[in-house]
C-alpha cells in the first residue's frame, strides 16, 4: 500500500466534485478506490472542495459500512452475515474465525497483515455458508475449513 496521499494529490483527485450535485458519495468512493481508504486528510480536502465541513464528511464516512479510515489489510476475509449462511452454521464460522484470527468483526491486525469484516448478502445463497477471501467467494464452508483458511491467510499475510 502506498504512503498516505498528500493534500495536493487529494485536491487534484476531488477537483471535479461539487456540493449539492450528489457528489459526496461518489467522491468518497473515488478516494477509497484510489487509495484503499479515506484518510483524515482526504476528508479535509474533500470538505474544502465541496465547501462544507470535515465533520459533515466524516458524518457520512462513519455512517456507511463500506468506508475505511485506515489502509486496508493485505489479506482480508469478509464474512457473509446473510440468513442462508446463518442457517447453515454461519455464526459458528464467525466465532471460529474471530478466535483463529484473534480479531473482532471489522478489525484488522496491527501490522496490517489481515483483516476480518462483516459482509452483506449478495444473493449467492446456493454457496452458503460462505466468506469472500480477497473478494473471491469461498463457499460451502465447514467450520473446520474456515479455520484452515484463516490460518493460511495469517501465514500468508505475515510473510
Amino acid at each position: 500500500m502506498a504512503a498516505e496521499p498528500t493534500t495536493r494529490e487529494l485536491r487534484a483527485l476531488v477537483a471535479g466534485y461539487e456540493f449539492d450535485r450528489g457528489h459526496l458519495l461518489p467522491a468518497l468512493i473515488a478516494i477509497q478506490e484510489r487509495y484503499g481508504y479515506v484518510s483524515r486528510r482526504a476528508m479535509e480536502a474533500l470538505a474544502r472542495q465541496l465547501g462544507t465541513t470535515p465533520a459533515l464528511v466524516y458524518g457520512a464516512v462513519s455512517f456507511y459500512a463500506d468506508f475505511r479510515t485506515e489502509p486496508p489489510p493485505r489479506r482480508e476475509i469478509v464474512w457473509c452475515s446473510g440468513p442462508a449462511c446463518r442457517l447453515r452454521g454461519g455464526d459458528r464460522i464467525r466465532e471460529a474465525l474471530q478466535h483463529t484470527l484473534g480479531l473482532p468483526l471489522d478489525g484488522q491486525s496491527a501490522d496490517g497483515a489481515c483483516g476480518f469484516r462483516l459482509g452483506q448478502c449478495n444473493g449467492t445463497c446456493s454457496e452458503a455458508p460462505q466468506v469472500w477471501l480477497d473478494g473471491e467467494v469461498v463457499g460451502g464452508l465447514t467450520v473446520a475449513a474456515a479455520v484452515a483458511l484463516a490460518r493460511e491467510v495469517m501465514e500468508d499475510g505475515a510473510s
Partner: peptide, 26 residues
C-alpha cells in the same frame, strides 16, 4: 446517473436513499 451506495440498509428506505444521494448520512 448510476449511483453507488456505500453499505447502509436504511438507504433502501426512499427518504434515506434521497438523503444519501443528496450527500448526507442516509
Amino acid at each position: 446517473v448510476v449511483f453507488t451506495g456505500a453499505g447502509s440498509y436504511v438507504c433502501g428506505e426512499e427518504t434515506g436513499l434521497i438523503n444519501s444521494i443528496d450527500g448526507y448520512r442516509g
